[in-house]
Every structure is written in C-alpha cells, then in structure tokens.
Nucleic acid binder design. Sequence first.
DNA 1: GCTTGACCTCAAGTTAGGTTGAGCTTGTAG
DNA 2: CTACAAGCTCAACCTAACTTGAGGTCAAGC
Lengths: 148, 148
Amino acid sequence: MAPVRELTVGQVAVRSGVAVSALHFYEARGLIRSHRTSGNQRRYSRDVLRRVAIIRVAQEVGIPLAGIARAFQSLPEERTPTREDWNLLSTAWRDELDQKISQLRKLRDGLTDCIGCGCMSIDKCPLRNKEDRLSAQGSGARRLLVER
Amino acid sequence: MAPVRELTVGQVAVRSGVAVSALHFYEARGLIRSHRTSGNQRRYSRDVLRRVAIIRVAQEVGIPLAGIARAFQSLPEERTPTREDWNLLSTAWRDELDQKISQLRKLRDGLTDCIGCGCMSIDKCPLRNKEDRLSAQGSGARRLLVER
DNA sequence: GCTTGACCTCAAGTTAGGTTGAGCTTGTAG
DNA sequence: CTACAAGCTCAACCTAACTTGAGGTCAAGC
C-alpha cells in the first residue's frame, strides 16, 4: 500500500502554495533537495512540504533566504529530519525571533507610548534606541561614516 | 536661543543612521519631506528623525516602503505630528502587527511544538495552516493555478 | 578669493527573490 | 501510438530598495 509516495514538483507546488519556478529557485539556493527520475524529473520526499512551509513563514517575518538556508544546514542531508532535528533549528532561531517579537511589540505599543519622550529628544526615544541596537548588531551593510 | 534648528541631509543621515542617498530615496517615495534653502539644499524639521526611525523598524519587520508610505498618509502634511497623529498610525498598523507577532511566536514555538503533527499530515500542521491564512489574505501575487 | 567638503540631479548598477518564455523531453490517457 | 499536459534548462526580465558615479553648485575657513 505504497505508504509514502514521492511528490512531483507540480504536486509540491499545489500543496505548498508556491510556484514551480519558486521551487526550482529554492533548490538552486540549496533550501530544498530533490532526486531525479530516469527521465530527469524532480521527485521530492514529503518533508519538503514542511521545509517550504517554514521558508514561507520565515520569509514573511523578514528572514532572508540566505538566513533560512543557513538554519537549514543544521538539518540532516540524507534522512527525513526528526523531531530533534527541527528542534535544533528552532532553538538556533530562538534569539533572532525573540528579538523580532520584541521589536514588533515595541512598534505596535511603543509607537503610541513612546510619544511621552516628545521625540524632540530622539536620543532617549525607545524607538530610536531599538534602532541603535539593531545597527549595532549589524544586520545590514550600514556604512555611516566610512572614510573616503 | 534658537530652539528647534532645522537639519541638513547630512545631519539627518548621521543622527538617523541611514545614508544620504537613502534619505533622498525616501523623499522621492514620499516618506519624508524637506524644504529647500535659497541655494536648493534640503532642510528637515526634527520630526523627520522619528519618521526615519519608524521607517527602519517597520522595514526590519517586513513592512515594505509602500506600506509605510500608506500609513504615513494619515499624518498631517504641514505641521509636526501630534501624539494623536502618531496614535492613529499606530492603530492603523495594529492588526497587521498583531498578525505578524503571532506568526513569529508560532514560528518560534510551533517549530518545536508542531512536531506533534508528524508533518506527514501537513494539512493539519499549524505551520501549514498559518500559511494558508497568509495566502488567503493575499499579501503577495500568489497565482496557484491560473488557467492558461 | 579660493579651496574643500557638503549638496544637488540624474542615470546606471546591484542584490534579493522570483517570473516569463523559448525550445526541447517525458509520461500518461485515450 | 499519438496527443498533450507536465517537466526540464537557460536566459531574460521584473520589482523593491538602495548605492555609485559623473558632472556641477554652495558655503565656510584660511
């Protein structure tokens, strides 16, 4: 009773809600893997669905593909990830996610609350401080005053 | 004692931590405003710092510039925004931010918890369901099965 | 009064994350 | 056995969000 059939790229597209071209793209970026049939067509094991689901959610909250790929490197290459494997990935992201959650909360609440600072004194503003923390942690190529 | 001096683009760049070119860019996108000196140089009022701070934070959590611009349209054009003005903006975003916060929490916690679903039954997986909600709400140009 | 650094505009280039299209192959249903 | 939907590759195109560069102006110090 063929229990775990492999999926074609089209099936994965339908079930995951992303375009075939995007799946090709994710594969090129090393986010998902497939093997090929004798006729050179991709076949996916079912855990690809979970991977794709995680990719979409992570992207939605602002994690770039490169970051997702990095996180996925903690997953095993040649067997279906276990509970423990996903667990590891989760904890690898925990700090980053906690950070983002608190940013969001501050944006949601602080946007109102922060007004207390008058925002003429931007240096003491919680929003501003949050910003500092961000740039300090160096998420983007922030070049404030490079000498030239 | 010249209380509220206007800022040059360079000063805004240093104080806000974004490049001059980015400030030009935000201005072109209608996110910030300046007036010009007789010599055609930009001058900013201090509330631009708050705007830029909010732009950066909002971007960091995945809100595109166009969305920020839309939100900013609730702010008054020709006077410094008051507590009430910022308040409005905040509530305009509240739902979206609440959504994102819960997504993040599910990614952080669910990534571990969700394992219970075995994820072979992807349809019942909380992650997957979250995804469905997203695509249903139509955040991106998701075209699953357009007829062609 | 001239030099130097901060500004200005406008066009072109860059990275991320995909989509679209052409041209060719596979596999399945009648 | 043949049609035709689904796949494949590769190159080109697209939007967002900026940066870089060329070529020219403005203003503050010596």
